[in-house]
Design a protein around this nucleic acid. Structure first.
Length: 504
RNA sequence: GCUCCGGUAGUAUAGCCCGGACAAGUAUACGGGCCUUUCGAGCCCGUGACCCGGGUUCAAAUCCCGGCCGGAGCACCA
């Protein structure tokens, strides 16, 4: 029985679904993308963002893009854009956008409300003392200050009466709580540093838990999908909201970070690579940054499918093998990528008796829409050095689409053979080639993992040079093609024939 | 150190809540075969896992206890 292939395909896609979201009602789900614009977006952000987006979509809900930008010292304008660009590239469409720094006045009002309710106090202890006391589970003398006194201290903070580090606003929590985040956490601190969006207008900045609690309420967020380092904060954030009468809490789902073997996402370790001179920029194809991953030829659809099929809400540490992502990428690429000839480390080949001719070669073995090109040939060629090296006299090979030849002799700089005919022969090794007088120089960057066994891999980027057939010039910037028997490569430069190897 | 949370093949996961058709499913990787004018794709076959020990039960990957290992948090970062 014949089954229409498109039905099979539909079934395949149908099966790839995220597990149901607890407590989700169609049409009512609201999620959020909460990047901190303090670095370039990387693949971990991408997968986490995708999860939030996909669930919003799955339940016909809405999603916010909300920048968690309340540490002026870390935040930079270019990073906001990095995230917007990254999300867009992934096909994530957000319904609303805002910054936490938009709501400073509101945060101040809520702070005052907390102080008036006797639930927050200004603490002027030195940091070390605060840390020590929190560890010991004991409060300091400021905890018992009166509301009026706290109010005037708070206003003094806002007015600039304290310098950075001299005073913070703290929540009245529970100094004995086993969840240490509940032990009178800091709500606001003073930062004397220009913010890229608000300039010098504010000097008292809310901390994460305070800003997030309020923003998640304001945005009507129903589901928070985030990595596990936040797990202990659910309780705190719910508590802050309830003190403020904001009694609608999201469902929290936490999971371990998404990391790839040999490819750290930590800024510290990536910077070490940069400082060691092993990479020049954050968009290096070996980097897990979105730009790096994109340059490497990974498709957004692949990341999307990967997130849906290979991901789970596991707390256990995980380290994905790149091959898992490559396999998906390859399956997407295979039916649409043009096939071209490339001869790395080329060696000359002379086929005695080969006629002057030209052949038409399809760009794809089965996808005819991709068209074909004409290759002209005489008796002189270049073939891949690796192929030449394997050849032994009397062996028979076929230059793909062109002719068969028998090896006469093999030297390090040239292989000589005799022409055996044009028609394909059975059980003959087929190799790629370019005409000796009609080819272009091609350079392929081959990225590998940055770290091997926890140490910097000094050979994480290889450069392969060789000759490509003339049609390589028709490959557009960003187009991903397959150099036959070499691998899928993306053109990385507009004016040079420089490619980046994705995977085989 | 303290507090949480985990541990299913090399890797990533399904199953665990509600114990039984799980002699553990899938993907990837690996091995073999078929197909193919690519060492790619596709198709077929195969190797490979419930951290350890005890307990509960007719029955445990699933429940309980202990151990070991791993992760996260213990910020005036997010």
């Amino acid at each position: 029985m014949e089954i229409a292939p498109e039905l099979l395909e539909a079934k395949r896609v149908e099966e790839k679904r995220l597990p149901p979201l607890p407590g989700a009602e169609p049409g009512k789900v609201v999620t959020r993308l909460p990047p901190e614009p303090s670095g370039y977006m990387h693949i971990g952000h991408a997968m986490s963002g995708l999860l939030n987006y996909l669930y919003a979509k799955m339940y016909d809900g809405r999603i916010w893009l909300r920048f968690e930008d309340t540490d002026p010292r870390k935040v930079r304008l270019e990073y906001y854009e990095s995230f917007r660009r990254g999300y867009r590239w992934l096909g994530i469409e957000w319904d609303h956008e805002k910054n936490n720094s938009d709501d400073m006045e509101l945060f101040y009002r809520y702070a005052e409300e907390l102080i008036r309710a006797g639930k927050a106090y200004v603490c002027t202890c030195p940091v070390e003392k605060i840390r020590r006391l929190r560890a010991q589970g004991e409060g300091c003398e400021h905890r018992s200050l009166g509301v009026d006194e706290n109010l005037s201290l708070w206003n003094e903070m806002l007015a600039g009466g304290f310098r950075e580090g001299e005073a913070i606003l703290r929540l009245v929590g529970d100094m004995k709580h086993t969840n240490t985040t509940m032990r009178d956490p800091a709500l606001f601190r003073i930062i004397e540093h220009k913010h890229p969006l608000t300039g010098s207008r504010y000097r008292v900045w809310p901390l994460y838990d305070f800003a997030v609690s309020i923003e998640d309420y304001l945005c009507g967020v129903t589901h928070v999908l985030r990595t596990s380092e936040f797990a202990l904060r659910d309780e705190l954030q719910n508590y802050i909201r309830s003190l403020l009468g904001l009694n609608r809490h999201p469902v929290y789902i936490e999971y371990s970070r998404f990391e790839f073997k040999g490819t750290p996402v930590s800024k510290r370790r990536l910077r070490a690579i940069l400082e060691a001179g092993l990479a020049k920029s954050w968009d290096d194809p070996r980097f897990p940054t979105i730009e790096g991953v994109r340059r490497r030829g990974i498709l957004p659809e692949a990341i999307r499918e990967f997130t849906i099929t290979q991901t789970g809400f596991s707390y256990a540490k995980r380290e994905y093998d790149w091959s898992l992502l490559f396999a998906i990428n390859r399956k997407i690429l295979d039916p649409v990528a043009r096939r071209l000839f490339f001869t790395p480390n080329p060696v000359k080949l002379l086929v005695e008796g080969a006629p002057e001719t030209s052949i038409e070669a399809p760009y794809h073995p089965s996808n005819k829409d991709l068209g074909s090109r004409i290759l002209r040939a005489g008796d002189k060629f270049y073939i891949s050095g690796a192929d030449a090296k394997k050849m032994k006299p009397s062996e028979v090979y076929r230059l793909k689409y062109l002719l068969n030849f028998r090896v006469l002799d093999v030297r390090s700089d040239q292989v000589r053979g005799e022409f055996l005919g044009m028609e394909p022969m059975k059980d003959v090794q087929i190799i790629q080639w370019v005409p000796a007088d009609e080819h272009v120089e091609v350079e392929v960057l081959v990225p590998d993992v940055l770290y091997l066994n926890d140490e910097i891999n000094p050979e994480s980027l290889r450069v392969v040079r060789g000759f490509g057939e003339m049609a390589v010039e028709t490959v557009k910037l960003d187009e991903i093609i397959q150099f036959e028997r070499f691998g899928f490569c993306r053109r990385d430069s507009d004016n040079e024939l420089r490619f980046i190897f994705a995977h085989d």
